[in-house]
Simulated scan of single mutants.
Amino acid sequence: MQRIKRQKAIEGTRIPGIIKNGQYYYINLDVYEDGMVNCWELVDLKSLEEKLRINWLIPQIPEGENISIHGLGCYKIKSAKWKYDKRTYYKYVNNVIKQLNPKLNNIYKISNEETELLEKRRIRYSPSAIDFYVKNEFGYQTKEGKGFTIFIKRNDKNYLVNLVLYEDGNIACYNSEFEISYNLESIKELFEDGTFFTGFDNPTTIILDNFGEVTLSDELQCHVNINEKYKQLVDFYNELSGNETSLEKCRNAYYQYLIYPDDETREQLKQAYEAVPEHERIYLGDMDTRDTDYQRIIYHSEVKREV
C-alpha cells in the first residue's frame, strides 16, 4: 500500500506553567484550539489532568526552591503568591481552550489504541509551536516569528514577558496585561537602559503573567547576559530573513579552519565564535561535543583532538 500524509495547522496560545523534573522549570504551556496541550509532551485534557496528579505539571513552587527559566537564568524564590492550585489551574486551561474554540468543535481525544501504538513505536510528541501574527485577514496572510522570555520594567513593576520578533521585522512584547510593539532599532536601547533585564542585584518582585507574583533572588548569578539576548534577537531576524546566523557563520569558520588550520583561520574562527550569543554556543556541535572543539582550537590550540 502506498502511504501518504498531510499536515494541518492548529492554532493556539501560550500560558505559564511549571514542569517538575528533578528541579522546577518555568515553561510556556502551549494550548491549542483542539484541546491538546504541550507540557514537554503533547497530551489531551484527560492526560493533562494526569500530569497534574503526578506532579509533572504544577501551578506552584515552594519558597526557597530554585526556578529555571529557559534561555534566561536560574533564580531562588524568596516568596511567592500563586494564583492557582491544581484544580483551578486545570479549569484555567479549559477556559483558555474555550476562548480559542467557543463551541468546542473537534476536540481531540487520544484513544487507547493510539497510546498503545505510540508506546510500541517509542514515540513521544512534543512539537515546537510556531509564533505568528495575522497581517491580513483577506487570504489569511500571516507572518511567522521566533521569540524568548525576558524580564521587563514597566510602570514601576517587573514582568516576565514573551518577546517575539517576526519575519517582517516587527517585534511584539506579550503579557496578559499588555502588548507592546517595537522594531529592531527602537528596541536596542531598551536592552541597554535596563528596561529589559535578565539579572538583578537585590531580591526583585516579578509578575509571572496571569499566574503568580514571585520575589526572586539572583544569588546564584546564573543568568544570561542581557547583551547576549539582544544578539540572539538579531540572530532571529537574520534567520527569518534568510540570512546567515552567527551560529552558521561560526560553523563555516570552523570547517574552514579544519581544511586550512593556520593562525589566520583560527583568528577568524575566534571572532565568529565570540559573535555567537554565549548561551547559544553549546548548540554549535552535537549533544555530546557541544562547543568543546571550538574552545580547544581557539583557546587551547596546543591540545590535540582525539579522534
Rank of each mutant, 00 (worst) to 15 (best):
Q2D: 12
R3V: 15
K8F: 13
A9I: 14
I10M: 14
I10T: 14
G12A: 08
R14T: 15
R14S: 14
N21T: 13
Y24H: 03
I27E: 00
I27Y: 06
N28M: 05
N28Q: 02
L29T: 01
L29S: 04
V31G: 02
N38V: 10
C39F: 07
V43I: 02
E49I: 00
G64S: 06
L72G: 00
K76V: 12
K78H: 04
N95L: 04
K98W: 05
P102N: 08
L104Y: 11
N106D: 15
I110W: 05
N112M: 01
E113A: 07
L118P: 02
R122L: 10
R124L: 13
R124V: 15
S126L: 02
P127C: 12
P127S: 11
A129V: 11
Q141K: 14
T142A: 05
K143M: 13
G145I: 07
G147I: 02
R154Q: 15
D156I: 06
V164F: 11
Y166L: 12
Y166W: 10
I180D: 15
S186A: 13
S186C: 12
I187M: 10
K188L: 09
T195L: 14
G199F: 03
L208Q: 03
F211M: 10
E213W: 03
S217D: 00
E219R: 00
L220K: 07
H223E: 09
I226F: 02
K229H: 09
Y237C: 13
E239G: 03
E239Q: 08
E244V: 01
N252M: 10
Q256A: 13
T265H: 09
E267G: 08
Y273A: 01
E274I: 11
A275G: 05
I282T: 05
D293S: 04
R296M: 05
R296T: 08
R305Q: 07
